[in-house]
Every structure is written in structure tokens, then in C-alpha cells.
Nucleic acid binder design. Structure first.
Lengths: 163, 163
DNA sequence: AGGGAGGGTTTGATTTTCCAACTCACGGGG
DNA sequence: CCCCGTGAGTTGGAAAATCAAACCCTCCCT
């Protein structure tokens, strides 16, 4: 204490819910864990196999996701103690993000090949091709149609963003 | 070869475009870089300040994103050489993912406070509240309405996924 | 000549990741 | 009883990534 020279570097990145969300689910494997539990795979060893993550890292991610309220950890057997992980409501609401990311990957990382490693069927009977739309008007969200308004004084955006 | 005991561990995680996409944009800060360039901040020092990333890490992320075709690096001044980064078409198509993630963060990480650090205005005049919908039927994508079909034999999904 | 700004690279210490091996608790043969 | 296998992790040590600060170079301004 009693340190008159406060030099510890301000370090104030832009306040932002994207950053906050990524602080929870942006670590390596976290979103893949969510993918698996959304697919219905609830057990540790299954997750290790399907994700390909080191067991210790997976254990640590699971703890974090449970703490964050994105997964639940439920006992399905005492003696020996065994647990299963499931998405909470908040976790399930991240699934659309995964679907959008998957669609992006299918489009841009596999341009030349028609086969996708996984297809999602929507209840309407068609293959799911997700689109992000504006709730108010229903139109697809396109970059040119957006304007950012930072609520924190001092933070700016610098104008048009054409490539 | 001629090694009868094949023990080197197969290590075959589930093939998946989510994983492939995350391999490109899932590293720490990568999506924040995209956020900034989508906001129109194109320069290195601006990015360092707004993101709060170490300069060397940021330099490495920028290289990766340029190589991946998500950003372009364009000279805006020879002598002294100076560059600016902009999203490509592929990069802009990731913006909806960011919007969805931001909305999730606003909803779940700030339940109690009404103020969001940033508001996006859609061209329709309303504040953007993004929804992920099925292109075929237009309905919002909800977990219960989805069925996964792995295209790769041997990969399974284990059934209903209620919390 | 001194002081920025801009766009990085270098250096060295601190964290994470990774992977294999180990544990503990059971269940099932033989 | 002894050994094997499964499930869910924990432990230990080496390898890789991150971090902060310092440095470099080229201009421009005064």
C-alpha cells in the first residue's frame, strides 16, 4: 500500500459483451464441449474421445462451464460416483451460435467439396441452413445495414468498413 | 513400419466444421480483432488499444487471419510503410456470429443491468436484436427442433438432450 | 536536436497445454 | 481370489503460448 505512483498500466480494452462471452466460452475446446453435450453426449470419456482434448484440460473446461451456468453436472451413479453434463437453458441458447459457425465453416472451408461432415435437420423437414435476422424487421443481418453506438464515452467507431 | 503393436493413439476427434472454423478464429483475441475491423478500426495500434492484447500476439493473429482470407492487409502508406486491416467478404460473413454472441452476452451476463456496453442499430431503424432462423421455414432455431445426422460412419449422437 | 506516432520484433519470465501415467471405485469373468 | 476393463478424473514434467516491457526504424513536427 501507500504507493503514490500508480503506474500499473490502465489497460482498458473496449467494454463489450462479445469479449465477456468469449471470456466464458472462448477458451480452447469450450464450444466443442457445448457441441457435444448439445448432441446428447454427456459423459467425460465420450467427450474426451469426440473432442480430442487432453483429459485434464477437459476437466478444467467442464468446471468452468458448470460454474458459468452453461452446463449442469448431475450425478447418475453414486458408488462409484459418476456424473453427466448437460446444457442449461443458457447453454442451449448458445447452440444457434454453433449452427451459424458451422454454416460459415461449411461455406468457406469446404467451398470445393459438397460433403459436409454433419448435417442438421430442422423440424420443418429441411436441412438447416441458419440465417441471422433482425428480430424487428425480419431481414437478414448484413454488415452494411449495421451502425454501432458505443454506450461508453470515449469509445469510438471510425466509419464505413468496406473491404 | 513392421511394428505389430500400433499404440500411438489414433486421436480422431469428430470431424466438424465448427471445429474447423474455431481452428481459424477460435484463438484468443481473433474474434475481437474481427469485431474491431468490422467497427472500422483498421490500424495496429488502435487494435492493440481497443482489444487489450499484447502486441506480439496481435501481430501473430493478424498474420493468421490474413492467411486464412478473413482479413486483408493493405498498404496505406509507403515510406514509412504502414498497413491497414479490413475484413474480406468471408470476414464480414462472420459478423452475424459476433452479433449473436453479443446478444447472448447481453442477455445472460447482464441480466440485472439494463445497460449494454454497445448497441447496434439496424437499417430498419430499430435496435438490432438478432435471431437465428431456419432459411427454409423462417422459424427461429431452437434446440428441440434440430436433429443431427453425422455424415461420417462411426460417429453417433446419443439422443434427446433435455437439461 | 528532441519528441511524438505508427507498426511492429525481441527478450525473458510466467502460464497453459499437452500427454502419459497413475489413482480410486466398481463389475465381471475364470 | 486375481486380473481385466470402464469411468472419471488427478498428477508430473516437458513443450508451447502468453505477457509486459523494451527496443527498432521511419517518418513528421518544432
Amino acid at each position: 500500500m501507500a504507493d503514490p505512483k500508480n503506474k500499473p498500466a490502465p489497460k482498458d480494452p473496449r467494454p463489450c459483451s462479445i469479449a465477456d462471452a468469449l471470456a466464458l466460452v472462448g477458451e480452447k475446446y469450450s464450444l466443442l464441449v457445448l457441441r457435444e453435450v448439445c448432441l446428447g453426449n454427456r459423459r467425460f470419456d465420450q467427450l474426451v474421445r469426440n473432442i480430442g482434448a487432453p483429459r485434464d484440460v477437459l476437466a478444467s473446461r467442464l468446471r468452468r462451464l458448470v460454474d458459468a451456468g452453461i452446463l449442469t453436472r448431475r450425478t447418475y451413479s453414486e458408488h462409484p460416483q459418476r456424473f453427466e453434463y448437460r446444457p442449461t437453458e443458457a447453454g442451449l441458447e448458445l447452440e444457434p451460435v454453433l449452427m451459424t459457425l458451422m454454416a460459415w465453416g461449411d461455406r468457406h472451408l469446404r467451398k470445393d467439396t459438397l460433403d459436409r461432415p454433419m448435417v442438421i435437420e430442422h423440424i420443418c423437414g429441411n436441412e438447416l441452413v441458419p440465417a441471422v435476422t433482425c428480430t424487428a424487421c425480419g431481414d437478414p443481418v448484413r454488415h452494411e445495414d449495421l451502425t454501432a453506438h458505443p454506450q461508453t464515452p470515449g469509445w469510438t467507431v471510425t466509419g464505413p468498413t468496406a473491404a
